[in-house]
């Protein structure tokens, strides 16, 4: 044994690589943010325009065709975001010759998606109960919890991103007038900020 520093570094690297999913792509975070912005913009246009320019008035979102259209947009944003995250992370793991499917990535996915899927079912219940003003707070809160639990198994920045979503979600629950704005800030702006931070730190 010639170099104890090197040996310790080796131990640390192995512990990290075996427990954390390090191929998560920062760029996909930025893209998810952009999709969310577009989605929120379209939703704002359909729901509020032209009655209010600032989207501050809560109006009953009742007409069922509008509800369907909003659901389709939300679903589209979700599929695009997950799709980009999957493809770009796979690309990143190939580039860094790391394994994409590993015990670490499975743990990461489980930690993220248990709260997120629970949040999905919860949101359908809210629609069922016509509690539309709680949709944005609920999706933000559950997603935030998912990110915080997943942060133990991936890059550390995810934790702060999750806390941000959580704070916005709880704020929006008390001030439903700001629901859509909070949703756009959380899923849009925070994703872009943290995604680009991760991109500059790890992806290049």
């Amino acid at each position: 044994m010639k170099n104890p520093e090197k040996e310790l570094a080796e131990i640390k690297a192995m512990m990290e690589r075996s427990t954390r999913f390090l191929s998560l792509s920062g760029l996909s975070g930025v893209l998810a943010g952009i999709y969310a912005f577009l989605g929120a913009g379209i939703a704002w246009y359909w729901v509020y325009y032209p009655s209010s320019e600032f989207a501050l008035e809560t109006e009953e979102v009742n007409p069922s065709d509008l509800q369907t259209k909003l659901l389709v947009i939300a679903f589209l944003v979700l599929v695009l975001a997950i799709g980009s995250a999957y493809l770009l992370s796979q690309y990143k793991s190939q580039k860094k010759s790391q394994q994409f499917w590993s015990p670490a990535s499975k743990r990461f996915l489980l930690a993220l998606f248990i709260p997120v899927i629970a949040g999905g079912f919860f949101s359908f219940a809210l629609i069922h109960q016509s509690a539309y003003q709680l949709l944005a707070p609920a999706t933000l809160t559950f997603y935030g919890l998912g990110l915080i639990s997943a942060s133990h198994f991936t890059l550390g920045e995810i934790r702060n991103l999750g806390i941000g979503q959580l704070v916005l979600g709880i704020f929006a629950a008390y001030f439903p007038d700001f629901g859509l704005i909070c949703w756009a800030l959380g899923f849009g702006l925070l994703h872009v900020i943290y995604g680009s931070m991760m991109y500059y730190r790890y992806d290049r």
Binding site: K12, M15, S18
Partner: peptide, 15 residues
């Protein structure tokens, strides 16, 4: 062997 043991210290089990 050092790497194997490092992994098993950080994971409950590994296949």
């Amino acid at each position: 062997r050092l790497r194997i043991m490092s992994i098993l210290m950080a994971n409950e089990q590994y296949d």
